[in-house]
Design a protein around this nucleic acid. Structure first.
Lengths: 130, 130
DNA sequence: CGCATTGTATGAGTTAATGCATACACACAC
DNA sequence: GTGTGTGTATGCATTAACTCATACAATGCG
């Protein structure tokens, strides 16, 4: 039994904007992993926990987890649980101008004391705000 | 016939990340409207133009346009075209410093010819230590 | 009027997303 | 071994997303 139901679990939310549920779950976890909110090697909340918390189907959560595993972001271990992969960051890219712009934004974000992932989500949210 | 096929048209892009096409189109237009890249009252590219440019169905584009109209962001006029609504700016958001930073990033993105949503995803991807 | 442009609409068909229920397989603790 | 927790898997049903094709309706221009 868990002593401290994942605090991350309580932060998960679902928008009603047409984006598939599994995509929303995937993005939120990837963002948390990127910012270190979910440390490498640490255990993710159980698929069932997420399913219950968000009141969605177990298979929907599994869909999100599977995609994250395919990307190498997490490891799924039958009978034990899901864990953030501890592979050294394998994504050293910045040739693309968009990537450079993204890195600049990340830098500005960190300077100002904000999590880059938060900024990214604001951008997405503002785009959709009419 | 158009003399200057919408430059905005050439900036439209589609990701392959599970987000419905109509949502991606919607987001990119709303962002452009929010930042003023598409001025109030100005004409949007034709549904057919967008459909051809992105190689998607006319009905898919229409889905996106319909949602934008329902939100009051644009006006659809049969036989004439689609136009950015000139209602007083319906998106008065920028109190939060993070929002301001996000809007600045959106503006830079559009200037450079990139979809803000794309930028947001790059940010997430680059942060992601995997 | 005749015609091109543009938004509107419909129907058939395919694929994906989601939910619900029911299991099975593996790990670990007791 | 037993039991519980966890990931894995299947089948069925429903709804949404998307494509393709074909049209209709309104506008505006010559």
């Amino acid at each position: 039994m868990h002593t401290h139901t994942h605090d991350f679990l309580t932060q998960l939310t679902l928008r009603d904007d047409g984006v598939p549920i599994y995509v929303q779950i995937r993005e939120q976890f990837l963002a948390a992993i990127a910012t270190g909110a979910l440390a490498r090697g640490s255990q993710l909340p159980t698929m069932r926990e997420v399913a219950v918390a968000l009141k969605v189907d177990l298979n929907t959560v599994r869909h999100a987890y599977e995609e994250m595993e395919r990307r190498g972001a997490i490891d799924l271990v039958r009978g034990r649980g899901s864990f953030v992969a501890n592979h050294p960051s394998p994504a050293p890219i910045d040739a693309d101008p968009l990537d450079r712009m993204a890195l600049a934004a990340i830098a500005r974000s960190l300077e100002a004391g904000f999590a880059p992932a938060e900024l990214a989500h604001r951008i997405l949210r503002l785009c959709k705000g009419v």
